[in-house]
Design a protein around this nucleic acid. Structure first.
Length: 313
DNA sequence: TGGAAATGTCTAG
DNA sequence: TAGACCTTTCCAC
């Protein structure tokens, strides 16, 4: 469920509160005990996100790779630094919880006042703990310790991510593309696969998930079924540019707000109210915000695809 | 209390 | 393409 913006926020949270520390690493659930032992007490040297993958590099070269999958999440507890850029501190990053018992900042503050560190709650695969901050990981699809070569091999399978700095790839001995937009154009326009499916392919572009896919295609007024090779190069490049804009905004705010038609007041309302954030995602049967046609939902490659059959034709 | 659903990815056939 | 897998939460029964 978490898309690229969430993982970049997680990477930044680790950069603020864990890089330069020697966190105690444990696996309260037990399933990651062997991996945790390899990292326990080592200095965390860097924290980076590429697409939906998180890479934490420790002194000694070990890399903790985490992919949240459909419902993984990190909880940051105790002293949690604000992420800056005007955004507020977020204690829980990952899969959405339909309702949280407490507001995020409230929860962090309350825990800070209680005994530290707090007892792990639920199935905590791995816990990183400094003297003042705890990060708990639940429900990941992937959580493993890699050597730098294996970590680089994971990076090699990912398409470009507009929010990745060149030095991140450089640290793993990989060069970033001089023109990532062109790389995406080439990956899309040589395939017969529907563009709606290609945008979800992490080897084509990294970080896009089901929500951003639906919204990017609507913003481009593009039919998701269009074969990649039938999409004009300039349209693919525009999709890439728009993805960079949406991702940057998502990282800054922590929210996937994909409507560019809102004024400041409307944006504030949409940040607070999920039901008005998107053009088409999750709106099956509701009228298109542009033309009034009912938004359609169908299955594409096993995932729900939302689009407006009139605007995107 | 059981089932379904959720912003994902991998494997076998 | 179907099934498996990771976990939590809500809702119907």
């Amino acid at each position: 469920m978490p898309e690229g913006h969430t993982v970049h926020r997680i990477a930044r949270q680790f950069a603020r509160d864990f890089v330069g520390h020697r966190p105690a690493v444990s696996s309260p659930q037990g399933r990651f005990a062997a991996g945790a032992a390899l990292l326990d007490g080592r200095e965390l040297l860097s924290s980076a996100a590429v697409g939906k993958q998180l890479f934490l590099t420790f002194d000694g070269g070990q890399v903790l790779r985490v992919h949240l999958g459909l419902y993984g999440a990190w909880d940051f507890l105790g002293a949690v630094s604000p992420l800056g850029d005007g955004s507020s501190a977020v204690a829980s990053l990952g899969a959405p919880r339909v309702r949280r018992r407490m507001g995020e900042s409230e929860r962090a503050a309350e825990l800070a006042a209680e005994d530290f560190p707090p007892e792990p709650v639920g199935q905590v695969r791995v816990r990183l703990a400094t003297e003042s901050t705890v990060a708990d990981l639940r429900g990941p699809t992937a959580c493993e310790v890699l050597d730098p070569t294996a970590a680089a091999a994971v990076l090699d399978r990912l398409g470009p991510d507009p929010a990745v700095e060149a030095d991140v790839l450089g640290a793993f001995g990989r060069e970033s593309s001089t023109d990532p937009g062109r790389q995406v154009v080439e990956a899309v326009t040589k395939r017969r696969t529907p563009v709606g499916q290609l945008l979800m392919d992490q080897a084509v572009v990294a970080g896009i998930g089901n929500i951003y896919r639906a919204e990017l295609l609507f913003r481009a007024r593009l039919d998701p079924h269009t074969p990649g090779r039938a999409v004009p190069a300039e349209t693919v490049r525009a999709l890439w540019d728009d993805w960079a804009v949406l991702l940057e905004d998502g990282i800054r705010t922590g929210v996937m707000l994909t409507r560019e038609d809102l004024d400041a007041e409307g944006r504030a309302a949409a940040l607070a109210d999920q039901s008005i954030r998107h053009w088409v995602y999750g709106r099956a049967g509701e009228p298109c915000r542009v033309c009034g046609t009912h938004v359609v939902v169908e299955e594409m490659a096993g995932r729900k695809l939302y689009y407006c059959p009139a605007c995107q034709s």
